[in-house]
Write a protein that binds this DNA or RNA. Structure first.
Lengths: 231, 231, 231, 231
DNA sequence: AGTTAATCGAGACGGTACGTCTAGTCTTATT
DNA sequence: AATAAGACTAGACGTACCGTCTCGATTAACT
């Protein structure tokens, strides 16, 4: 039943090449329409009908290729979203992780964050969605982070748990908590405070990223701590 | 417009005693029916109609007193849910926090966890819900935890961040991450590994809770001298 | 059960004078509000709620005194409607009847006609309403017309049916038909044509009313015959 | 907007053959269900929901094809009602008209009369309904009657008005008046009295229909050589 | 070139729930 | 007792989507 056709190849491994092949154009239109709708609506309020209408496509065509609205959204989001949270390879591990965390927080503070949060939300009522999200968004990143952490352990004298994942969660969980619970803003100030605290607990120097230009952007970081709320 | 009437008193809301007063019985029936439905359905799949049907109540009565399904659920959940995550007051702060964390994790690993997760999910598309959730579930607990952390700082030599909340997030965020992302189980093993790692980073001994019987399962509530915490 | 309180006397013949007497002011407000609403809505689209709201009165008060919306309307219409279709007594019977018919047609061509038509419409689903309508609107008029017809028969040589009512129907039915079916307009042209034809069949001269100033009003009577439709 | 699809052909309405064609079965079920309900309820008390339920059909399907409940009823009534008021063609005009009037009165004295009256009632608040009624029920009949009257004028020495419609109204209006106002029964006695009076006014002999067996009750259709008239 | 088989758009269809509205009834305090 | 205010159950309103189902028209690959 699971047929989340994310592959860019039009008609991938259909039983045989019999019959009219799947239309790549149609697939693209659907995903593009979805992304367009995501800019003005929540996933919850988007409907398959609306996507079909916006894409100029029959409803059945969507139902044929995706099991649920959320899975369409995942595909659409992945396809049209250039990943802006790379893990730099030319930096020492401690620096690289800090850079990644910073960019992730910046990413999640905007539109992408809202989408990710809503995908996770949809996942609470549909295990398939949550699984898909983990496989497409999370596990790759997690594996890379794990690698970096291992490298860090080897290169530096840091206090590491028996299961290195535990440290990974310590670094990333607060970000997801703010993303989903809205307890506090996902801003630069949070990023610096969080990262520098964990690094100091680990007994290492604060990474360079935290030292560069203290960007005040549009906010006075001193008083801005508890804006959380509204969203 | 926000009129999530959770008050135990029947009807003080009305300006004066004009007109027929709100029926307390009806309110109770609605919340009870909601809890009943929550045992077999997700919040998303529950409908206002179903609640009204189950409660033997007119739909309009629900719409009159609550702004959304999720707010009914919050009320219902709070009312019919004996809080099982107390923060013990007769223990040293470090121990008390660990006990609380353990019981929270155990709590969230079951039915209550599913409900909380779904409430947060509903909140992703409705700021009012998320706000209500924070105010009713979270802030009380957070304040208590903050107090305990302050007490801990005073009594023990631990490495504490400038903003003590940062430490709070470090302790609690991984729990919410597993609750919502499903990256790993919310079990005893996780609880021990997470807590003992953070405590070791802080430079304090592992708390006693982690040392007791490795397989309590049914959990003997050994530390009973507590006060109802949250809410 | 029938308690269509149309009497102008405040507290009519209540069993005894026990308790608070019926409020005449309230009764008046209700009827006034109803008439006001009748100017912008059909009876069907008016609701008891709307009347209560408009009158600043409790719904129950209306239900206490009237059995149905239509009966309120009948009361309201009778009360606020000065009858403009008198049967002149100083004319010979043939003239008097013609005058009455003319004024009735003119009356029914406007707002009053719409109300009467709608009351009859309500009566199709509620015999009580139709009965009330006949008793309050119709029978009085019919009796008078009968008298006039009898007088006419005595004074003039006209061909009269065994049951004089049969002639009455012949004179009045086409008016009600146009009122209710909308087959043709209820205008002066119709009035003249209809009356003069029946009078000629009866073998009497056309009445004087038909001879006075041929008022063209705003219409060319020659081509206007079949405008009926729209309403 | 007017799309009272009464056509026996399933779906010519659609611009072209795009999309799934309209289901004739569904249309039939809806009309049949409506007729069934009409036997136990007034049009006013019937709801679209009830029709949908009775027909085993989605509400939207009804809304898609009809603009109002009354229009469904008109379609249903026309479709399931074999017209029993033919205008015989093998009789002299005066006789034919009398026969038609008699059968119309008999028809209107029962169930069909109640339905027609209620349709007209619905029409008082909705011009579209009244228009539809006239077009589907009335105009066809009226045209035939007009023809008969013209034929009558040519063949016999009767006193006819300048506009022959005026005579038509004289003959038919009393029937509709009794149907709608309930001033007197719609029975054989009325029929005879009314018709014979008008005929005598016209200076012609009473038609044969009035002379036959005074108590037929079940009515032997002696004059069968007819053609389906109305509609 | 014709056949075959799946895809596509359009949109009808039976359902279900939405959030609103009104019907009548009832409860309270006030007159 | 009658009133206004307004809560209450019940259920219809007309709309929107759901997911499924015909249709006729495409579109390749396989005869």
């Amino acid at each position: 039943m699971n047929r989340t056709a994310q592959l860019p190849v039009p008609a991938p491994a259909g039983e045989r090449g019999v019959g009219r092949p799947r239309s790549e154009a149609t697939r693209t239109q659907i995903l593009a329409a979805t992304v367009r709708l995501l800019h003005t609506s929540t996933i919850q309020s988007i409907t398959i009908e609306a996507i079909a209408r916006e894409a100029g496509v029959g409803k059945a065509t969507i139902y044929r290729w995706w099991d649920s609205k959320a899975l369409v959204v995942i595909d659409a989001f992945m396809e049209h979203h250039i990943v802006k949270t790379p893990i730099p390879h030319n930096l020492p591990p401690g620096e690289a992780i800090a850079v990644h965390l910073m960019s992730l927080i910046r990413e999640y503070s905007g539109w992408s964050g809202r989408i990710v949060a809503q995908i996770i939300a949809e996942g609470q009522a549909d295990p398939a969605v949550l699984r898909e999200f983990r496989e497409r968004f999370h596990y790759g990143r997690r594996a890379l982070v794990r690698e970096m952490l291992e490298a860090w352990r080897s290169s530096t004298r840091i206090h590491v748990p028996p299961n290195i994942e535990t440290l990974g969660e310590l670094l990333y969980a607060p970000v997801y908590m703010r993303l989903l619970l809205g307890n506090g803003p996902l801003d630069d100030h949070f990023a610096r405070e969080h990262i520098s605290y964990v690094y100091s607990l680990l007994g290492v120097e604060a990474p360079d990223v935290l030292k560069v230009s203290e960007r005040p952007k549009k906010q006075k970081p001193a008083t801005r701590k508890t804006t959380a709320a509204a969203r």
